[in-house]
Write a protein that binds this DNA or RNA. Structure first.
Lengths: 234, 234
DNA sequence: CGCGCAATTGAGTTATATCAAATACGGTGG
DNA sequence: CCACCGTATTTGATATAACTCAATTGCGCG
C-alpha cells in the first residue's frame, strides 16, 4: 500500500482537473469554482492484490473512488458464511455508507493492483452544500450502484451454476476496462455466487476444456465472450 | 387507484409540514423555506392490491414516496424468469432511477392497499439546487436502499430454503409497521427467493403446521417471530 | 352448487453439496 | 536449478436439497 499525498490545494485542483479518468469519477461535472472549495488533501493510494482497504463495522473519515483495478465488497453476517455482495471497478465509489457517521457495511479487499483516490468526508459535505453538480454526480452513481445490485440478484445469485459462472466471468471482463483480468480464487467466485468452491472448480475446469476460458501463466483470464454469452441466452 | 390532488402551493406545504410520517419520507429535514420552493403539485395516490404503479422501461416525470403499504419491484430480463429484487415499505423512495431521463428498471406493483405521494421530478431538481437538507435525505435513503439490496443478496437469495422463507416472512413483518401483513402468493415469494412455487408451498405449509405462521381468513399473516428467528440463527 | 385459480401434496429426477482423495502450482531454501 | 512444502485446484463417489411433473385439495366467488 503506497500513498501519494498532494498537499497544496492548487495541486489537487490541477490533478483532479486533469485526471485522465475524470469523466468516470465523482467529480466528473465539477467546474473550476467547485474545485476551489476543496480544502483538504485528496490522496492517491495504491493497493496490491489482497490488501484490505477497510474492514466491516468501522467508522471512516474518507470515501474512495477507484482509478483502476477491481475491489470486492465482503459482508459477513452472524449466522451465515460471508458473501461477496458486489464488485467495484473504475469510477466506482467505495465506502459511501460511512458518510453521516455510519459504520462500514463491508470489508473492501482489492482483487488486483488497485489505484484509489481517498477523499475526506469534509470534501463531500462542503461541496454538497455548494455544488449541485456533485449532487447530480452522486445520484447518477446511486443509480449505477443499484443497477449493479439488481444484476447481482437476478444474474449472479439465481439460476444454473454454469450460467452464473459465465455471467460473472463476463462481468469481470467488462469491468476490467478492456484488459484481461486477474482470475479470482475459486473460493472467491463461490462467495460471489453463493455456491461451493468445488462446484466453481468443476465449472471453470469445464470452461477451460471448452477453451471458453483461458488462463495465462500469471493467472490472467481471457474469455471467448461470444461462446459464454451464448451459453445462457435463452 | 384514487388520486387526491392538492392544488394550491400553500396547501401542499401545510400537508407536507404536518404529514404524520414526515420523519420517514424524503422531506424529513426540510424547513419552511425549503417548502416554499415547491411550485408543482404533490399528489397523494391510493392503490389497491395488484395495481401497477409503473412499468419497466418507461420514462416518468415523477418519483414516489410510500406513505403506507408494501410494494414489490419486479425486474424482467431477456433470458431469465422475472425476479422480485426488492420490497419497499413506509418511507421508501420509488422510481428514483427515473431521474435524469433514465428509464425505469422495474415494474412496481402494490402488495396490498398502498398510499403514495407522487412528487414531480422538478420538485426534486429545484430543491436539490437549493436544499442541502434534501441532499442529505437522499444520501440517507441511498444508504438504506443499498443495505436492503445487500440483505436481499445475503439473506434472501442464499442459503437453505427454510431459512430464506423464514427470513423473508420476518422482513415482511418488520416492514409492515407493526401490523400483520397480507400474505403474498406462493408464486411471488418464489420470485423473491428465486425458487419454485412448489418449494415455497411445501415450506409455508410446514410453517403453518408448526404454528410459526398463522394465516387469517382474510389472508393476513401473523408470525411466531421468536421461533422463526431461532430457525436459522446459526 | 360448481367453476376457476391457488395451494398443497407426492413421486421421481436432477443439480448441487458434501466428503475424500489426488494433482497441480508457487514459493522457499538448499 | 532442483526438491520440497503448503496451498489451491481438480476430480470422483455419494448424499441431499430442490426441481419437475402430475394429481389432489382447498377456497373465493358468481
Amino acid at each position: 500500500m503506497h500513498k501519494i499525498q498532494i498537499k497544496q490545494a492548487w495541486t489537487e485542483v490541477e490533478r483532479c482537473q486533469h485526471c485522465a479518468i475524470r469523466h468516470l469519477v465523482l467529480f466528473s461535472d465539477l467546474q473550476r469554482k467547485d474545485f476551489e472549495l476543496i480544502h483538504k488533501p485528496i490522496d492517491e493510494i495504491e493497493y496490491k492484490l489482497g490488501d484490505v482497504i477497510y474492514k466491516q463495522n468501522e467508522t471512516m473519515q474518507f470515501v474512495y473512488t477507484i482509478r483502476s483495478g477491481l475491489v470486492k465488497l465482503v459482508q459477513s453476517l452472524p449466522g451465515g458464511r460471508p458473501r461477496i455482495v458486489r464488485i467495484l471497478g473504475q469510477g466506482d465509489l467505495l465506502g459511501i455508507e460511512s458518510l453521516n457517521n455510519q459504520q462500514t457495511k463491508h470489508m473492501a479487499i482489492s482483487l488486483d493492483k488497485v489505484d484509489l483516490c481517498r477523499i475526506p468526508h469534509s470534501v463531500i459535505t462542503s461541496l454538497q452544500y455548494n455544488s449541485p453538480r456533485l449532487h447530480k454526480s452522486l445520484i447518477v452513481r446511486w443509480q449505477k450502484t443499484l443497477a449493479m445490485a439488481d444484476f447481482w440478484i437476478t444474474q449472479i445469485s439465481s439460476g444454473k451454476i454454469k450460467c452464473r459462472v459465465a455471467r460473472l466471468l463476463l462481468l469481470l471482463d467488462k469491468k476490467s476496462e478492456g484488459e484481461n483480468f486477474l482470475m479470482p480464487t475459486r473460493e472467491d467466485i463461490g462467495l460471489m455466487l453463493g455456491i461451493t468452491t468445488e462446484s466453481v472448480s468443476k465449472t471453470t475446469a469445464e470452461f477451460k476444456r471448452q477453451q471458453w476460458l483461458m488462463i495465462s501463466k500469471d493467472n490472467r483470464a481471457t474469455l471467448d465472450v461470444k461462446a459464454l454469452e451464448q451459453l445462457c441466452s435463452d
